[in-house]
Structure formats: C-alpha cells, structure tokens
Amino acid sequence: MFQVNNLTFKYPKNKDNTIKGISFSIKDGEIFGLLGPSGVGKSTTQRILIKLLDKYSGEILYKGKDLKSYGKQYYQEIGVGFEMPVHFSKLTALENLNFFKKLYRSPADIDKLLTLVGLDEDRNKKISEYSKGMKVRLNFVRALLNNPQMLFLDEPTNGLDPKNARIIKNMILEFKNNGGTILLTTHLMNDVDELCDRVAFMAQGQIKEIDTPKNLKLKHGQRKVAVEYKDEVIKTDSFDLDSLSTNEAFFNIIKTKKIITIHSGETNLDDIFIKVTGVENNA
C-alpha cells in the first residue's frame, strides 16, 4: 500500500530535521504500528502520509504511484482518526456526520456505525454534551465515514473504558479482515500487541527497529525459562531454553517439586519500547 524510501523532513523554523531518512513499507491488509515517545517524528510521518505536509524529500509511493501525484481525491480513499476531538461542538453528532458525509462519493452507513460504537441513542445530542470517551468513539466513526481502504489512527482507544476500547479494537480488526490497511500510532502497548502485524519503533527521527511484535519479543528477550517452586522454602531457578530438553536439573524439579510458576524469558513491548527508544513510555 505504502512504500516510503529515505523520507526526510524539516519544519521551516527548526534547525534540525524532524525526520531523518526513514524507510519502511506498509503492506496491503496489515496493521502497521508506528511507535515511540513524543516528539520523535511519529505524528510528522503520519501528517506527511495524509498529505498535510508536502515539503519532504525522499520518496513515498501509494499504490505504486508517487503520493505527490494524488490530488484531493486521495481523501476519498483514506480515513483519518485524530486523537483529539474534531467535531463542531454546537452541532449534534448526527449533524456533524451528515455534514462530512456529503463530501464523499461512497459514504458509509452512519446508523450502523453509530450503533456499533454505542452512540446510537446519543446521536441527537450536541457534541458539547458528550464525554471524552464519546468524542473518541465519534472520531472513530468520522474516520470510517467514507468507507476508506486505508485508515490512519492516532491513539484510537485513548480515554476509553475497557468495554468501549474492546468495541473499537474489534472494529479495527474487522476493518482489517475486510481487506483494509491501517497505520496505528499509540502508546498503549497492549493495543499494539493485540492489533499490530508489524511495528516500527522511532527515536530521534529515525526508525530503530521494525518487525513483528513476536519477533521483537524473541529478539529482545532472554532464551531462558524461570521456574518458581516450593522446596521447604520458595526457590527460583533459571534454565537455558535451547538446552532445556536435555537439562536433568530442570526435569528433576518438574518431576519432584511443587511448581508455583514457569515463565519464559520473552520480554514485553513496554520493555522493548524503553530499550529501543531509550525513553520510559509515560502515556
């Protein structure tokens, strides 16, 4: 869907480049996560891909064609879900959606979307009466309003309770299963783990790591198994994963002791985030 080659960008008033020669691809039908701490260029990259910034160097191909060759019709094909509310506060949800819907050639079914995100009964409420979570869900509906092929989502579950976050995540997966492609930006590593096929970690305007969450965990984890067991007192022993099948000590514990827990040394995305970007994930 996207092929980005040696992308570099500098804001006019900045001394240094915000994006420093990054390259990556987003395949058709995948969920690609763009991760990293604030200020490393994630949002700038997304702004370039949604054609809000155009004075970049390098090459971006969308469906094999230079992104710069696409006009406003590009927005018939993509949907953008912003993190912050983007609706007219003195209009109702339905008035907002109806206004934007008329700008598209093949609009989605508003009733169905509002029902799916649980806003059906609040459709005639003004946005100023909406809670933060309701606004986040409405942002998601706005992003899907034109039945897009490509979806850009910025923190789509931020501010949602677990039940509504689950609904949005299921809708994202359903969008993918129907052939859609997604670029996801989020700080919530659980969402990344659950949704993303591949992720790129950004730091200082560069991509530091790019792979599937599974491979990253294997790469950055330790190939060890920690066994916690009871032997008069509670003990923990660690064994090398690669020689586990021939490790007598390990089998002896398994056979003779009361096992409390067994953990592989696989790491989690939070730890990889800190390790790769050098910054705590504070979100």
Binding site: Y75, F82, P85, H87, F88, L103
Partner: peptide
C-alpha cells in the same frame, strides 16, 4: 477561530475539498 479551537479544521483538511 472556532474551527481551530474545536479541531474541526483538521477534519476539513483531510476531506476531499480544495
């Protein structure tokens, strides 16, 4: 300024309008 304050300018900018 209303559009700026409410963020709706962003929504308009990613719409198929010139």
């Amino acid at each position: 300024f209303y559009e700026k304050q409410e963020g709706t300018i962003k929504s308009l900018l990613v719409s198929p309008i010139s």
